[in-house]
Amino acid sequence: MKITMTVNGKAVSGDVEGRTLLSGFLREHLSLTGTHVGCDTAQCGACLVHVNGEAVKSCNMLAAEADGADVGTIEGQANADGSLNAIQQAFQDHHGLQCGFCTPGMVMSAAALLKENPRPTEAEIRKYLEGNLCRCTGYHNIVKAIMAASGQDVSSIAAE
């Protein structure tokens, strides 16, 4: 079936099967491979994107369900001039990643959190990230990066 949607501000369309996942449509039809498929069981959150502004695990949503939707992926996060946005820059500044596999999902999750809660506490960030798994960092620097991206002082929390 034919589906059309807006991805990172651009109108796109494609011919998909009923069983095509949104993650597969983004990666294989649109070559937007920044959205990672980690567990494929909707637990790890590496595939997290925004659908009509809401955080969604794209490996657990059919592409056909996103027909007509406004989708945001990690490729749409950078500033217009190509520089890193505040969240991405904070991840770099505070070493919020090691292998980087979970990072696209972490950044998209952080963006969704900061939209609904612009100055979250450390506890609120940890709670919000329950659906995003990182096997390298132990989360401390991810939490720190998100706090820094929201303009808060991070000098007193979590070791580098």
Binding site: A42, L48, E54, A55, N60, M61, S109, E130, G131
Partner: peptide
């Protein structure tokens, strides 16, 4: 229930 992304769907 679940986590924030699961609750959105």
């Amino acid at each position: 229930i679940g986590d924030p992304a699961v609750r959105n769907r």
